[in-house]
Design a protein around this nucleic acid. Sequence first.
DNA 1: TTGACATATAGACAAATATCGATATAATAC
DNA 2: GTATTATATCGATATTTGTCTATATGTCAA
Lengths: 106, 106
Amino acid sequence: MVAQDKATDALSFAKALADETRQQIMQLCCCQWLSVNEIVSHLQVTQPTVSHHLAILREAGLVEIRAHGKHTFYRLNQEKIASCCGMLMARFAPQQNHSDKPSTEA
Amino acid sequence: MVAQDKATDALSFAKALADETRQQIMQLCCCQWLSVNEIVSHLQVTQPTVSHHLAILREAGLVEIRAHGKHTFYRLNQEKIASCCGMLMARFAPQQNHSDKPSTEA
DNA sequence: TTGACATATAGACAAATATCGATATAATAC
DNA sequence: GTATTATATCGATATTTGTCTATATGTCAA
C-alpha cells in the first residue's frame, strides 16, 4: 500500500465527507455493522445510490467491509476518521504563534 | 449569531474543504495575513475565482477578514479549523467500544 | 473629478457529481 | 438446474460547482 501525500489525503477525505447522504450513512454505521439494505431502509435514496456512496467511502478508507453470505456489511472506520481529522489539524491549525495584524499595517 | 446544528456545521465545513484550490488558499494564509492579490499571485487561477473561493471560506467561518485601504487581507481561522475537526471526531469517531463482528454472524 | 488599482459580483459555460432505472453479478434456497 | 434475494455496475439525466470574462463597487492619488 503506497502512502498518498498529505495534500491528496486531505482532499480525498474532505471530498468523501462533502455530501449529506454520505454523512448520513456515516452516522448510521458509526459503531455498528449494517448491511446495504439496512442502510437503504433508513434513507430516502435508492439502493444503487447507497452503493455508489459506499464505494466512495470505501475508496477513501472511511468504511470497513465484511462479506457474509448474500450480505455485505459496512462499518465506519473510526480510527481512520480520527487520523484524518488529526492530519487536517496539523495541516491547517498548527499550534504556533501568528501575528495579530496584517504585515502591511500602516 | 445563531448556532447551526451539528449536521449543518459538519457538512458546510466538509464542503468548504472539498476543493483543491481552496485548500491551497488555506495553506497560503495559514498563520499570515495575505491580500487577495497576493493569494492570486501564488495560484494558477484568476482573481475572481480566488474571490469566489474566499467567499465560500468566509461563509464557512474558516477565514478572518481585515479591510485596510484598498486591500482586503485574509487569514486562516485556525481556531475554527480546530473546533470543526474536533466536532467531526466527536460525531464520527467517538471513543467507545464497538463490536468486532456483524451482529448477524452465523 | 478623473484615473488607476483592488476586490467583489454577475452571467455564461464546462466539468464534476448525485441520482435514478435497468441490468449484471453473486450467493442462497428450492 | 431455476428462482429469489442482495449488492454492484452501467448509462442517462439533472443539479451543483469551479472557472472564466466582463463589469460593478470602492479606495486612493493627482
